[in-house]
Design a protein around this nucleic acid. Structure first.
Lengths: 241, 241
DNA sequence: TAGACTTATATGCTTCTTGCAACTAAGTTT
DNA sequence: AAACTTAGTTGCAAGAAGCATATAAGTCTA
């Protein structure tokens, strides 16, 4: 099984990089960490790490999530602090021969959807950045709170572009918007999530009808408080079983 | 960049496996090759191979397609013998620590959609097998022409299950059915492709309306010949540019 | 050659979904 | 009490999809 012809076969390192997405102020944001090594010293990059022995790719991604994003994980099933599973899914594998200038590194990218309050900005060395993907572009753009634009390490801007495209496509046939919200949320908040991801206004009545008809929302009978004006009912995602 | 702690970090081999799908007799079929090595000696398996130095994952998949399936490829753009590109797309990466009993092997799986007449059954060592995926199952079943069922090497039955699910999902929002047909085809043939993939009957009038309204079909003005009964018009996929 | 047969293609109708706009409801602020 | 803002509902029109039927264009058979 060991490749015999070492002049021909490549023996790459394999890393897992995780795109941690969250929503803040009506915008998609991504968690980045500052590199402390060459190349791309001091550049912002996706949290990631080499896979370990005896560990599956899913487990490696959960570990990265736990160690670099402070999100608890548990035997393949990553969990939010509150105990609910975090949405974590394999995205795509990037393997251009020169994506890392030092050596052959193949990166299995994952993406996670996390409620904003659960993303800990652990230190100066990690932070949330606004994420923008223009149509037809194959790299995403990254901005800090002041609107300053950053270049990312390696091909991470491409990875982000793939992530945003994936979540947009997925949203049109699966209601993963929940994953970015707290356990209880209003329909307006859910609609705002969809609008932020899809980058377009949605019709309120249609959105409500579709969501309620899907049977995935469970009304709690409780309402927002202190909003000024009429409070909206709180729903939760109907977890089967 | 080299992982330092060799007791902890893993340095796997990386292979590319390609799920070559085609359609024959109204059924999805997959190209398998017979293994000539341990483990799983003489088992049927997906065509695959180690990645080479200087080669991207896409290029590795195209090379596997060329060498193991006799399908011409060219600089990342794999092409049918006739000159049209073959549909080839990355599927998913499989990396359970013990999926290969000998060593850590991570497999980046691709899938290709190929017109039946272009799949060469090169020798005794390769063949097309009927592919069946039951709802809720996470492994696909494999049958030969006589209806005999086979077990596959490694986790290849799981890879096939993921491939079938992916193509089913994709078909509902992208008309990739073309890729399994010759350049010119009738609407009945196209509908048969969709029905074979989705495993359900479709309404003829609705299917025609939707396909023609999509603007992706170009009528050729020519018709089938020698079919007995009324010949249907031949269409081709509208290639932009 | 007429008529039976089979499949291609078109059309009308119903049902369901979606977008749009107006309406009512329930709070807060002045 | 009236103005204001957002929540939530309802009616209608446009479009998509399922279903049945009608017509068209060939071959086959008597």
């Amino acid at each position: 099984m060991e490749p015999l012809d070492t002049a021909l076969y490549d023996r790459p390192s394999v890393t897992v990089d995780v795109v941690v997405l969250t929503l803040r102020g009506g915008c998609l944001e991504v968690l980045l960490v500052r590199r402390k090594e060459h190349p791309f010293l001091n550049y912002w990059s996706l949290p990631g790490g080499f896979i370990w022995k005896g560990e599956s790719l899913d487990e490696a991604a959960a570990r990265v999530l736990r160690h670099k994003a402070g999100l608890e994980a548990e035997a393949g099933r990553t969990r939010r602090p509150g105990g609910h599973p975090i949405y974590l899914e394999q995205l795509y594998t990037f393997g251009s021969p020169n994506r890392d200038p030092r050596a052959r590194v193949i990166s299995v990218a994952y993406y996670a959807l996390v409620e904003q309050s659960h993303v800990r900005e652990i230190s100066e060395e990690s932070g949330l950045f606004r994420l923008l993907l223009k149509d037809e572009e194959n790299v995403a753009e990254i901005y800090d709170a002041k609107g300053k634009k950053y270049s990312l390490a390696f091909d991470h801007a491409e990875i982000l572009a793939v992530a945003v495209r994936r979540i947009r496509g997925k949203l049109s046939y699966t209601p993963i918007g929940f994953e970015l919200l707290p356990e209880r949320f209003t329909l307006r908040e859910l609609q705002a999530v969809h609008e932020a991801i899809l980058q377009k206004k949605l019709n309120k009545a249609s959105f409500r009808r579709k969501m309620l008809a899907s049977g995935l929302l469970q009304p709690t009978g409780e309402f927002e408080r202190g909003t000024g004006f009429r409070p909206a009912e709180l729903y939760r995602f109907r977890r089967e079983a």
